[in-house]
Amino acid sequence: MIVAEAKPIKEILEMIDGFNKILVVGCKGCVTVCNVGGAKEVAILASAIRIAKKKKGKDVEVGEITLERQCDPEYIEELRNIVQNYEAIVSLACGVGPQFISERYPEIRVFPGVNTRFMGGAIEHGVWAERCAGCGQCVIHYFGGMCPIARCSKSLMNGPCGGSNHGKCEVSPEIDCIWDKIVRKMMAQGRLDELLKIRPPKSWLTARDGGPRKMVREELVK
């Protein structure tokens, strides 16, 4: 899933300073799963905005709604009859959501309420870790099922570098050296010969480096 984290309330309040009719829009997708942008978090942020605005003596109207998904125009459409009641929207979806909303309703100001961090998953309760860099050409099967593009600080295809330190990355003891794991797993599986192959330079054409991406599936296009 896409993992996001809440923006500091101070930053959100600064964004919406001057707006008194605000709609907080949640998303039932990834951000609900990572506890940052579902109905619950929408309610919490809406209350925080009300309290903060009240403290400043402002009379505000803060609406709450949580859409099925913000990355799908059909769900964004559900805002059609509500948006005109507001001056600003704070979206708690990943970076896709606020953009879809502002594309659909160009007359209203849209602000991001979360910082989108990465594609990953929960490794334990309350802890999420990156797993995929979205490079557009998956190669994890060469690396014991682990992605060095996303998980090695240097995206090495022929690691580990000399900075591997007791299973940790030279960048931080908080980061696992993925190449340490790749080597140990593949050697344990008797796949040293595969590790000895020199992996050629990667084409980044399918990654973000090739420019903004778009995917068309003809059979689905009406």
């Binding site: 600080s153 240097k154 995206s155 022929n158 000399g162 960048v171």
Partner: peptide, 26 residues
């Protein structure tokens, strides 16, 4: 390969690592 930029004096820099040291040798 080079030391990661997070150690250095411009830790905010974008890291490149288009190719790695072994690919550079080839």
């Amino acid at each position: 390969s080079g030391d990661h930029q997070r150690f250095g004096d411009h830790p905010e820099a974008k890291n490149v690592y288009d190719i790695d040291s072994i690919q550079l040798i080839s």
